[in-house]
Amino acid sequence: MYGWIWRHLPGNTAVRALISLVLVTGVIYLLFEYVFPWAEPIMPFNNGGAVE
């Protein structure tokens, strides 16, 4: 999969690396802003570390 993405990015190696960095940063941002807050209430380990 990563090879397929790398082959389809435009430009030389430096441009591809920069585009890859931007894509990875965007995915991480989306995860932290939208996916993790949505999933947090339904996760079983959201009790703040208290042992019961």
Rank of each mutant, 00 (worst) to 15 (best):
39 A>E: 09
47 N>D: 15
51 V>G: 13
21 L>R: 09
7 R>M: 12
5 I>R: 10
9 L>V: 12
52 E>G: 12
26 G>L: 01
45 F>I: 11
22 V>G: 01
44 P>I: 12
17 A>M: 09
22 V>L: 05
32 F>S: 03
22 V>A: 03
10 P>Y: 10
39 A>S: 09
34 Y>E: 00
23 L>W: 12
8 H>S: 12
8 H>R: 14
27 V>F: 00
45 F>P: 13
21 L>G: 09
32 F>R: 09
8 H>L: 06
13 T>Y: 04
12 N>M: 04
33 E>G: 08
50 A>I: 07
21 L>M: 08
9 L>D: 04
34 Y>W: 10
50 A>Q: 13
30 L>H: 01
25 T>D: 04
2 Y>D: 12
40 E>A: 10
17 A>G: 00
3 G>V: 07
13 T>C: 06
6 W>H: 08
38 W>V: 11
4 W>G: 12
35 V>A: 07
1 M>V: 13
6 W>A: 15
19 I>N: 01
33 E>F: 06
42 I>Q: 13
31 L>C: 07
31 L>A: 01
33 E>Y: 01
10 P>C: 02
3 G>C: 02
21 L>H: 04
50 A>R: 10
15 V>M: 12
48 G>D: 11
46 N>Q: 15
49 G>K: 08
48 G>F: 13
29 Y>R: 04
24 V>Y: 04
46 N>K: 15
35 V>I: 06
26 G>T: 00
49 G>T: 14
2 Y>E: 06
18 L>P: 01
42 I>Y: 15
12 N>Q: 13
50 A>T: 15
42 I>M: 13
39 A>H: 01
46 N>W: 06
8 H>K: 07
29 Y>D: 02
16 R>L: 00
37 P>T: 05
27 V>S: 00
42 I>W: 14
7 R>E: 05
17 A>V: 09
43 M>W: 14
32 F>D: 07
12 N>V: 04
32 F>C: 03
25 T>S: 08
24 V>F: 01
28 I>T: 01
36 F>D: 01
36 F>P: 03
35 V>T: 06
19 I>P: 07
40 E>M: 08
8 H>P: 09
6 W>C: 13
12 N>C: 07
48 G>Y: 11
7 R>Q: 06
20 S>Q: 02
35 V>H: 00
23 L>H: 01
39 A>T: 08
8 H>T: 12
15 V>Y: 02
46 N>A: 14
33 E>Q: 13
39 A>M: 15
26 G>N: 04
42 I>N: 11
47 N>S: 13
26 G>R: 02
42 I>G: 11
18 L>E: 05
45 F>M: 14
1 M>S: 13
16 R>Q: 06
30 L>P: 06
42 I>V: 15
33 E>W: 06
15 V>L: 08
41 P>G: 07
15 V>W: 05
23 L>R: 02
50 A>E: 15
35 V>R: 00
47 N>Y: 08
15 V>P: 04
7 R>Y: 03
2 Y>V: 11
35 V>W: 01
16 R>H: 04
52 E>Y: 11
25 T>A: 12
50 A>F: 15
9 L>C: 11
42 I>C: 14
10 P>Q: 03
43 M>I: 07
49 G>Q: 09
7 R>A: 12
17 A>L: 14
11 G>P: 09
24 V>A: 12
10 P>N: 03
26 G>V: 01
6 W>L: 10
12 N>A: 10
16 R>I: 03
39 A>Q: 11
34 Y>Q: 00
49 G>R: 05
23 L>C: 06
48 G>C: 14
52 E>S: 14
5 I>K: 05
